[in-house]
Design a protein around this nucleic acid. Structure first.
Lengths: 198, 198
DNA sequence: GTCTATAGAGGGATAGAC
DNA sequence: GTCTATCCCTCTATAGAC
């Protein structure tokens, strides 16, 4: 009873949690890009005043960093889910599709993930980022026979990122990449197989 | 004589030409990125008031578009200069090095080139961009035996752009890509050669 | 925890004098 | 063609009331 009465006397009831803010921020980012993810529009979307957001995040940069962490988790989950294939080659093929699908459906989030923010040292430094790289390395190693095959893994990732980036920016043109993506990916995977069975 | 006297009575002598503005804008872009290339700092660097710039460029967007055109010319020139090699394979190898060197030494300019600006339809639409693509296509065709080998050219370009982008953003980490770039490039070039001599 | 209100910086662009 | 002066907009972030 007492709690019910105080409920009605609270002048400004809580509307926000870090989770709801991040959720709405993610929506704004995916729909309108990083410029659409400003504190004011974010507050509007949450039915709140801009200043209120700073009770939950110290700065916009802090919010972006947490968003990037979540994105790294999501990409890692997609990739590891795709990796459950019968052969190492099929796994790397499925991983490539999952990776490109992520970048295609959430281009701005992929950008956030791949764009180093100020004072964030280079390299994928998040825990999820390391797990992602280790997953790639493991599956590459399963195909090439070398359990720590950095060279082939870099080549594979480089091609994937190039494809994601060019597709994202529409630079392949109206005709799309046609069969160029399969060709390039197979070239790199073939080379891994040859390294295993020379 | 008359012209000499009028020289002294001109209240505001001309200081700007489109060329000098573009030159300074290029410097600002290369040194500080797109955010440093604002109209006010640009005017400061030229010893001029911000409003004066609008006598030479209708808008900042127009300036960026011309800058992108120049960048496309520069990259095309670098690439075609590198392409004078003895064999098709050596040419594609030299082109790759020139391409990555351009992106590495002028990362913000490379970004400008590869980032579609609003109301600019997708695909490399500049004249220089078409020439660049045609040059790639010609050299790929010389190696693979197919004069219009879009698939192999896309694979080649995709890998180059991925390498340029990852190197640019420092995502390879402290150790760099190691031999991953040579591995990936050779995998794609090998496949072109095999297409020519199955 | 949200509110009102505002500081303070930065940006693109324009009007009219000279 | 450049100048002075300004308009109007955006943004991040903070102070203090409730």
């Amino acid at each position: 009873m007492a709690s019910r009465r105080t409920l009605f006397t609270v002048p400004y009831p809580a509307k926000l949690t870090p989770a709801t803010i991040l959720r709405e921020a993610q929506t704004l980012l995916d729909h309108g890009g990083p410029d659409a993810l400003a504190m004011r529009p974010l507050a509007d979307a949450l039915g709140v005043r801009p200043g209120s957001l700073y009770r939950h995040f110290d700065s916009r940069a802090a919010l972006l960093n947490q968003l990037a962490e979540h994105a790294a988790d999501a990409l890692r989950d997609d990739v590891t889910a795709a990796a459950h294939a019968q052969t190492p080659r099929a796994a790397l093929d499925a991983i490539a599709r999952a990776y490109l699908h992520f970048a295609h459906t959430r281009p701005h989030t992929y950008d956030l993930l791949m764009t180093p923010r100020p004072e964030q040292p280079p390299g994928i430094k998040t825990t999820a980022g390391k797990h992602l790289w280790n997953a790639l390395l493991a599956h590459v190693g399963a195909l090439s026979g070398n359990p720590d095959d950095t060279g082939h893994a870099v080549a594979y990732w480089t091609f994937l990122h190039g494809a994601a980036s060019l597709q994202r920016s529409g630079l392949y043109g109206a005709s799309g990449p046609q069969d160029g993506l399969d060709i390039g990916l197979n070239a790199i995977l073939d080379r891994m197989e040859r390294a295993a069975h020379p």
